[in-house]
């Protein structure tokens, strides 16, 4: 059994310091690792990244993150990543990390992701340069996720993104902005590998649960959606067959 805690969209700045810490101090009793689904900061500054590290660092369990669009706002995403990495947080962008937990191998593949929309209402790689750049970015990022997911053999495989891979978890958001909240290409990447769970954030007004077309459970862990410091998910539950035990 593995328990992973997850949250996204905590948007840390000086004014948030101390708000998550009491719940985070209890995290090692409840989960084996913490996954962060992007939007760690408000404007993606180095100063805010340091605030994030102060609040979410040194927990005694591994912390794995992807960045979100807010973490790109100041064009300092590389330095933001460095601040996180220096503090011991693993930042994924098109790559993977494998954690050994209770004798199980938990693999996490992560990308920020991008918009583009979903079946029947998606943007196409066609027309103006700007449009082709937009959808081209979506396609490249999804391909990197697919390759990352397929690159590891583990007992439980988790896909971590900021943007949503399915529309199910966007329910509650205005339909008109779905194309800016996620894309079907991320879902297709997740379905191309034996993914056990997909976690994302970004959709603050969305809903918690969904599934990809291929049946992979999807959870929107944006802080305003889960309304607590983090959610905890249990993977690889050992099912004991009661009848077998009895005989």
């Amino acid at each position: 059994m593995i328990r992973i805690a997850a949250v996204g969209d905590v948007h840390v700045d000086k004014d948030v310091l101390g708000r998550f810490r009491p719940a985070l101090e209890e995290l090692p009793e409840r989960a084996d690792a913490l996954l962060i689904a992007g939007d760690l900061t408000r404007h993606g500054t180095v100063e805010e990244a340091r605030c994030f590290v102060t609040e979410f660092g040194g927990l005694g369990v591994p912390v794995v993150a992807v960045l979100g669009n807010h973490d790109h706002q100041s064009d300092q995403q590389a330095r933001v990543s460095d601040v996180l990495t220096e503090s011991g947080i693993t930042v994924l962008e098109g790559d993977t990390t494998v954690l050994e937990l209770h004798g199980h191998r938990l693999g996490i593949a992560g990308v920020k992701g991008f918009g583009g929309g979903f079946a029947g209402a998606s943007a196409s790689n066609f027309g103006e340069r700007e449009m082709k750049d937009f959808v081209g970015t979506t396609e490249v990022i999804a391909e990197r996720l697919e390759n990352a997911l397929k690159s590891i053999e583990v007992d439980a495989l988790v896909a971590l993104t900021h943007y949503a891979p399915v529309p199910d978890t966007l329910l509650g958001e205005p339909l008109e902005i779905y194309a800016f909240l996620g894309c079907y290409q991320l879902g297709r990447a997740i379905d191309a590998a034996p993914t056990a769970l997909a976690l994302h954030g970004h959709a603050h007004h969305g809903s918690e649960r969904g599934r990809t077309p291929g049946g992979v459970p999807v959870r929107n862990v944006a802080h305003p959606v889960i309304k607590q410091a983090y959610n905890v998910y249990q993977l690889l539950t050992e099912h004991v067959d009661a009848e077998l035990v009895a005989s």
Binding site: R19, P22, A23, R30, H223, Q228, A229, N231, V232, Q234
Partner: peptide, 14 residues
């Protein structure tokens, strides 16, 4: 203001 308390439940994924 979004609440930030520790969770009381675990969700089993299957």
């Amino acid at each position: 203001i979004t609440r930030a308390s520790a969770p009381s439940e675990v969700e089993e994924i299957s």
